[in-house]
Design a protein around this nucleic acid. Structure first.
Lengths: 199, 199
DNA sequence: ACCTGAACACCGTTCAAGT
DNA sequence: ACCTGAACACCGTTCAAGT
């Protein structure tokens, strides 16, 4: 199938909202690209497709971004800010006992509606330092939440730190998917947390 | 810098051994590509570079492989077979107590001379089902070793299964690197295992 | 300031032709 | 059976020109 012709590529909906005025802003681009990523996967996030989604030509893209990596960075920034908000809300349930906070975060992780974006960002982070930096920041934030909860539960700082590392690394491994291991069931998660947190 | 001219790209050593006769075998290609990967990273594993390393032209490549994905699969096969051998030897130290077997496997994981290849394969696995399948098989193998050791230690099958999952997922997460968390020290590993395995 | 459209380099893939 | 070398399509990037 040729590029310029033929019917709509994927079920492209409205040609992207423009946040202010009729011109595009960098954040509009990030939003458009994120939509493409969620809808059609990482392979679809190329300049042609994103430009089509945004309703402009390729040259326009390079007025907003220096290269593809800069777009990826913008996407990462947007995504991680959103995730941070969600986690902060989960974490700010300070009235909830620590065990339930960890439980809530675990469940959020298992929800795979985010997993696709998460994986794509980590993949780009491998070659693009700016993206890697943002991911690292996000990981440390999650770690701090888990560590804090574990400290409440166990009292011992070293145990809390070491176990938090184990849980967060496991979460990252799980987020990467394609592990060949069966996705743990809710009951297995319960069992696991009952082993790692004190009874 | 143009493609066909200029001084040696990277410190390319001998132009690849040919395992039988003067013609190339598919496994020679995989070996050459693995060398490129280890030496210059995932971005360097393109057809031009690998062909240069193998000392032939691009057309030759397509006589041996249908496309780049097929090469990746061959690399994965070679690599996973080697890893399996190493782990089997670690695992077959049956006279060693189970705790020390897990300890040995953990240390093998922390050794980052393998980490680069590991990451690249998982990345390719995301788009290439053949590679993904092999990785999945490798992960299940590791899981079975860890689960077996934990069963010996704990007696309880469900605990062994659940904790093995946690450890293996954490290993995968760690292998992906770029987590933003500090690499655990040897002492922290000791502490961690003393918490997860029974004292 | 923001966008178009044509150009270029690079890389994966194909294929007819050689030995 | 195995390899060469030229061709083609595709995609990231640049840039002069438009409004």
């Amino acid at each position: 199938m040729a590029v310029g012709e033929g019917p709509a590529t994927s079920a492209a909906s409205a040609p992207v909202r423009r946040s202010r005025g009729s011109r595009l802003t960098a954040d509009d681009w990030a939003a458009a690209a994120l939509e493409v990523l969620v809808a059609d996967g990482i392979a679809a996030v190329d300049i042609n497709t994103v430009c089509k989604r945004a309703g402009v030509t390729r040259g326009s893209f390079y007025w907003h971004f220096s290269d593809l990596g800069a777009l990826h960075a913008a996407m990462a920034e947007r995504w991680i800010a959103e995730t941070r908000e969600v986690l902060k809300q989960l974490g700010e349930l300070d009235r909830l006992p620590a065990a339930e906070r960890i439980h809530a975060m675990t469940m959020h992780l298992l929800d795979d509606s985010n997993a696709g974006v998460e994986r794509a960002l980590r993949e780009w982070g491998r070659t693009e330092p700016t993206v890697a930096q943002m991911i690292a920041e996000g990981d440390r934030f999650v770690f701090s939440l888990v560590e804090g909860a574990l400290l409440e539960l166990r009292g011992n700082a070293e145990e809390a730190r070491v176990l938090a590392g184990l849980l967060v690394y496991a979460g990252i491994g799980f987020a990467h998917g394609q592990a060949g291991l069966p996705k743990p069931t809710a009951e297995e998660i319960e069992k696991l947390l009952s082993l790692v947190l004190p009874a």
